[in-house]
Amino acid sequence: MNADLRDLYSWVQAARERVFAWAESLPAEIYTQERPDFAYGSLRNVQAHIADCYFAWIGVRGLGLPLGSERLDTSAAIDVAAMRRVYNEVDGVLEQAFTQFTQPDGFLDVQFHDEALRVTQRWLVMHPITHEFHHKGQMLTMGRILGWPYPPGPDTDLGLPTESGIG
């Protein structure tokens, strides 16, 4: 796969680390607090949904990995440390894609519900990344509403190249 996508993903990981560090600073009951007015119900559940997107699009549709469970069992991810382990698995799927996706702009058909979508391997990597950033914004808004805003300092945009070992 194109080295640029691997570099981009390392910046995503650095940004994700900032969100994990913030989540670790929250009381455990805030991280898992269920609210019907929040997307996916809680901060933890949003992170699980993001991981599911990586697994489904890159793992299952792109790499042909077995589906396993349709959705991540959030009861098993009881805290931030457990969610970090889930994202270690996400990182493993991405590493596999970076190794196996050899034609990033070649078209392939993937099944999505009842239709076939014509996408590229590059798109399969970029889709969950943009999806993660969309939901990260929701998480930070949810944190503010719960009384635990993201602190001043480094924002949650892409990590700097120096944070990810590049440059």
Rank of each mutant, 00 (worst) to 15 (best):
Q103K: 08
F107D: 07
F98S: 11
M83R: 02
G92K: 04
H49V: 04
D109P: 03
P104I: 09
V90H: 00
A81D: 10
A81F: 02
A39L: 12
E70M: 08
S69W: 00
D105V: 13
H49K: 06
D79L: 01
A39C: 10
V93G: 02
I50H: 01
S42H: 11
I58C: 03
S42E: 15
Y40G: 08
A51Y: 11
Q33W: 07
V86W: 14
G92P: 02
Q100E: 13
D37N: 13
I30K: 12
E34Q: 15
A51M: 09
Y54T: 00
P36H: 07
T32Y: 05
A81S: 07
A97G: 06
A97N: 02
E89P: 04
F38M: 14
F107S: 08
V90A: 05
L43V: 14
P104N: 08
R84P: 00
T99F: 02
A81W: 04
E89C: 07
G106T: 04
A77Y: 14
R85I: 00
A48Q: 02
V46C: 14
A48R: 08
F55T: 07
L65C: 03
F98Y: 10
M83T: 12
Q47A: 06
A48Y: 06
A97H: 01
V60W: 00
A81H: 03
R85M: 04
G41N: 09
Q100R: 14
Y31N: 09
L65V: 03
R84I: 04
V60M: 03
R71S: 07
T74C: 13
D91S: 02
S42C: 11
V80T: 11
T99G: 03
A48D: 08
Y31R: 07
G106I: 08
A81G: 13
Y31A: 09
G92D: 07
S42D: 15
I30C: 13
G41F: 13
C53L: 11
C53T: 15
F38N: 13
E70W: 08
R85D: 02
T102S: 08
F112I: 14
A39E: 11
S42N: 14
H49R: 01
R85G: 02
